[in-house]
Design a protein around this nucleic acid. Structure first.
Length: 256
DNA sequence: ATGGTTGCTTAGCAA
């Protein structure tokens, strides 16, 4: 059994106490983290190791930053998109764990449609597609996990009319994610849940969580052959409750 | 009443 999670923690240092408690409670085999908001030098390796996890980290001061935590040692750790674009933003880390290729990504948010950040977001999706197709085939065991900053369709949005046309729901962004999926990926949550919801992110602003104004933007995508082993997937909504939560809840998938 | 937050870094940016 493999239990994998993806979680945008919104600062690993601000979330450390909750993150350690969650690791001990949920005991996942692999966790992809996003928005560490810290450099490698200030990443809390000691506490993560003490909780029983290896940590492959691609940090950045203040913004972004991604990591992969695992019970077993990761090999072949690679960071960044490694293409011809000059890009200081730490948004991708890849590793091989127990024979599975695991990627943790933090796709740019895009701020406002047609802004520079939006252009960067759409370009980043194209670069990620090229990254995948150059390094892997859809026959490889691969899990692409992270904050994609896209709700794939209106089932993934509690208030679709409110969010229509936003950077999370815009048709061009959805097409960018779909293009990635068309390379050869399966949305593991939708293998097991086809109804409206669940959601993985609620804005701190505007009382998003109390009003359940949620969106599903965090995903565990699997290559098709490996997805056949996926027995369930879920969002740990409980982790969004209580004192000092991240604005994202962990998303999990289970493989036999 | 018609906004409401959080985190990092220190007034402003990002989400």
């Amino acid at each position: 059994m493999l239990k994998i999670a993806t979680w945008n923690v919104n600062s690993i240092r601000a979330r450390l106490e909750r993150a350690i408690a969650w690791l001990e409670k949920a005991s996942p085999d692999i966790v992809c983290l996003q928005e560490l908001k810290t450099s490698n030098e200030t990443f809390p390796y000691d506490e993560i190791h003490a909780a029983g996890y290896h940590a492959a980290v691609y940090g950045q001061k203040t913004y972004n930053g991604v990591a992969i935590l695992s019970r077993n040692e990761p090999t072949d750790v690679m960071v960044g998109l490694s293409d011809d674009v000059e890009d200081p933003q730490a948004r991708l880390i890849a590793a091989r764990i127990d024979g599975v290729n695991v990627l943790s990504v933090y796709v740019p948010n895009g701020a406002v449609v047609d802004s520079d950040k939006w252009i960067y977001k759409l370009a980043w999706y194209k670069r990620l597609h090229r990254y995948l197709s150059r390094r892997y085939t859809p026959d490889d065991p691969l899990l692409l996990c992270g904050d994609f900053n896209i709700a794939p369709d209106d089932r993934d949005v509690a208030n679709p009319e409110k969010w229509a046309g936003s950077v999370i729901c815009h048709a061009d962004g959805r097409a960018s994610l779909q293009n990635l999926i068309n390379w050869g990926l399966v949305d593991t949550l939708r293998l097991h849940h086809v109804e409206q919801g669940p959601y993985s992110w609620w804005d701190y602003r505007h009382l998003g969580f109390p009003k359940n104004d949620g969106l599903r933007i965090d995903h565990i995508l699997s290559t098709p052959a490996f997805a056949e082993r996926c027995t369930d997937a879920m969002v740990d909504r409980e982790e969004r409750k209580g004192k000092k939560p991240s604005d994202h809840a962990p998303v999990l998938a289970f493989f036999e």
